[in-house]
């Protein structure tokens, strides 16, 4: 068997790959954004002293983390139409599922960031008269985020890779672009080979960026 690479061309990118890449990127960024916001609230809920808040939060987080993402994607895509009576489409379905899934992961990362801060920080902030919300907003969360940024970004890379799981519901992501191109050119092996190289390169570059950030953000949360 020999490889035929002549279909690796600019039109391959514009006709097949670009659209999928944009969706994969949009999916990653959307899930990162909502994952961070919702994840922060989930983390705070889980840390709450009130068990009627912390227990449900813990239940949501643990369930999400226990279920394989691809099953969540499928369930959400298949079950929601049964409840609301119409399909919401593969793309929207993917945005929502990924956001919820990421929230659970980010919640745990942010929670560990909050818990790694010395208790004295909270006490010092309270002693100045800051309200509980202000303590979080100005003292605890900024430090927790700083500490967890490298871990959060690593999770974002994983998320980018996981975005290919939307194949299960037929959404057009980057991987799908390679697949269709391979079919249309009759060269599936070469297409998947290129896909592997592309994903690897992308994730390699991203993880180098994360490494760089890690060395810049010193771990006591202060300016390097």
């Amino acid at each position: 068997m020999s490889l035929d690479l002549h279909f690796y061309s600019w039109s391959l990118v514009t006709d097949y790959l670009f659209r999928g890449f944009v969706f994969s990127l949009k999916l990653t960024l959307t899930a990162t954004f909502f994952g961070t916001v919702i994840g922060t609230f989930l983390a705070l809920a889980r840390l709450s002293k009130k068990t009627y808040i912390s227990h449900p939060a813990a239940a949501v987080i643990n369930t999400m983390r226990a279920v394989p993402l691809v099953m969540l994607i499928l369930w959400f895509y298949l079950l929601v139409p049964l409840f609301i009576g119409r399909s919401i489409g593969a793309e929207l379905s993917a945005y929502i599922t990924f956001s919820i899934f990421e929230s659970a992961f980010f919640a745990e990362i942010i929670r560990s960031g909050i818990q790694s801060l010395p208790r004295g920080q909270t006490q010092a902030a309270q002693a100045l008269g800051l309200s509980n919300a202000q303590v979080l907003r100005y003292v605890i969360l900024p430090q927790a985020f700083r500490q967890t940024i490298p871990i959060l970004l690593t999770q974002v890379i994983v998320l980018f890779q996981d975005s290919s799981l939307v194949y299960a519901i037929g959404a057009y992501d980057w991987l799908k672009g390679f697949e269709i191109a391979g079919k249309n050119y009759g060269r599936p092996v070469e297409a998947y080979l290129l896909a592997a190289i592309s994903y690897f390169t992308m994730c390699f570059i991203l993880s180098r960026i994360v490494q760089e950030l890690k060395s810049r953000v010193s771990f006591n949360g202060s300016e390097a």
Binding site: P118, G120, Q143
Partner: peptide, 27 residues
């Protein structure tokens, strides 16, 4: 009440993500 009761801790507990001046002005 706390706003007018000053407290100094064994481990200083300055906020490490804020400059010295911002530590003083925040509250």
């Amino acid at each position: 009440l706390r706003a007018h009761v000053g407290m100094v801790f064994q481990n200083f507990e300055l906020f490490p993500h804020l400059s010295v001046m911002d530590n003083l002005t925040l509250a």
